[in-house]
Simulated assay, not measured.
Amino acid sequence: MTAYARGLLHEPPVKPERPQFSSGPTVKFPGWSLDKVKTASLGRSHRSADAKGRLKYAIDLSRELLGVPDDYLVGIMPGSDTGAIEAAMWTMLDPARPATVAAWESFGNVWIQDAVKQLKLPNLQILSADYGQIPDLTTIPQRNDVVFTWNGTTSGARIPNTDWLEKGREGVVLNDATSAIFAQEMDWPKLDATTYSWQKVMGGEAQHGMLILSPKAVERIESYDPAWPLPKLFRLKKGDKLNRAIFEGATINTPSLLATEDYIAALEWAKSIGGRKALIERADANARIVLDWIESTPWLRNMVSDPALRTNTGVCMVFQGDWYDNLPEDEKAAVPKKIVKLLEERNVGYDFNGYRDAPPSLRIWCGGTLEQEDIKRLLPWIEWAYATVKGAA
């Protein structure tokens, strides 16, 4: 137990150099600055050859770094990860077919509401679990279409494997991978539509999503015409065929070329340090620092009880112990907010409170754009802040 955990209320001697610990948008890659973002495409039409070339370059770099199979399509979508996953759901989920939506945190529960209230799928299996747990995915029939979130952005629980998905299964698999991809390996042969946003693991700017389609997904889109109205932002077909121009840099609506160049800069940085393997190693090492600290801190526990399900990106922790357990519920909810406020006021750490719908908690982002030293410097400050909040109670 450190001095801070024993309640000695002196501030730690050093602060993180970069105090951004948000789970999205996440911190920029080390060494980022505006002069690393190329600007030649700015002020140009996104339909111009040069601008389309930059959009296609972003697509190609994404494919290369992620190891996407050659026969899969990669495209840029509006509306961040939300727009990408909902476009996939609206254009691929056929009410005539059985479907499963599995959720164990806030965003997965939104996809459940989409399936129930918006698409009104009649033959729907809902699998849900509390924060920190994952439902029994082996109960999903292989003929069902499936929507799931690879990594629980707001709970810190991720799937341990894809053994519950059989190769050659009948249903299509829609994978919201936004807080996992670039930090965890994707099992591409078992995935039909995979989505993510630039603002998560790569520290890019918001509002742009990515949609990765397997040949099976393309076949579903081309063979199925939804009965419900499709907003323009969800329209992936041109006539009876997939609009493949979307996957060559011709976006559905106007993208931000500044955000595109920022994403390209992050991808080029990732490639320069060793690509996907290096990003995963960095996230694993960062998360290990936090996971070990939680285990050694008596007034904290990981929100995810099973170590096999613990993420290496947004690590979530809840409070425990006699002092905290005896607080009224409203005072329990205030503890993490007070800790974050104390550290934000001192420019030590920003935006590491738990998600608003999650249990009262802290959530520290550990993706590959974080530096180990900054995480190591943050943790004693959290101990100091906890002791300060407890001492003032």
Rank of each mutant, 00 (worst) to 15 (best):
D322C: 08
N353S: 09
R282F: 01
W323C: 06
K337W: 08
K238A: 13
F247L: 09
V318L: 07
N353R: 11
I294Q: 00
A285D: 12
K241F: 11
E329M: 12
S256M: 13
Y355N: 06
P359H: 13
N253A: 10
I246L: 15
L362W: 05
T297G: 08
A270S: 13
L362P: 06
N302S: 14
A270E: 15
Y350F: 10
S256T: 03
K238R: 14
W293V: 01
F247A: 08
V340K: 14
R356L: 03
N253Y: 12
I264E: 12
V335E: 07
R310C: 00
A308E: 09
Y324G: 10
V318C: 11
G321V: 06
A266P: 10
A250Q: 14
M317P: 02
W323E: 02
S296M: 04
G354F: 02
E248Q: 14
K237S: 09
Q320H: 04
L300N: 05
F352D: 01
N347S: 09
G321N: 08
Y355F: 05
S305L: 12
R276P: 07
E248C: 07
D322I: 00
L343R: 07
D330M: 10
D240Q: 13
L342W: 04
D292C: 06
Y350D: 04
D292G: 04
A333L: 09
D325I: 08
A333D: 12
A287N: 05
W269E: 12
I246D: 15
D322Y: 07
K238P: 07
W293H: 14
A333C: 09
K271W: 02
K337I: 05
I252P: 15
W269C: 11
L267D: 01
A285I: 04
Q320E: 14
N302G: 02
A259G: 15
L362H: 06
K241N: 08
K277Q: 14
Y350W: 11
W299Y: 10
N353E: 03
A270N: 10
D306A: 01
R282S: 13
N347F: 06
A334K: 13
Y350H: 11
L342T: 10
A333Q: 14
S305G: 12
I289H: 10
T311W: 00
W323V: 03
L342A: 13
G274N: 11
L327R: 14
A266D: 12
V290F: 13
I364S: 04
P307H: 14
R346K: 15
P307T: 07
I364V: 15
K237F: 06
A333I: 05
G249P: 10
L342M: 12
C316L: 06
T313Q: 01
P360V: 07
D330Y: 10
R346G: 04
K238G: 10
N347R: 13
A270G: 12
C316F: 00
R282M: 04
I294E: 00
G321P: 13
S305F: 05
R276Y: 11
N286C: 06
R363T: 01
T254A: 08
V348Y: 04
P255K: 11
G321H: 03
D325W: 09
K277L: 07
E344S: 13
L279P: 00
R244N: 08
L279I: 11
L279H: 03
M303E: 08
S256N: 13
D262M: 07
A287V: 00
V290S: 09
A285K: 15
F247D: 02
A287R: 02
A259P: 15
A283D: 02
V290Y: 12
E268F: 05
R288Q: 14
E345P: 01
L342K: 05
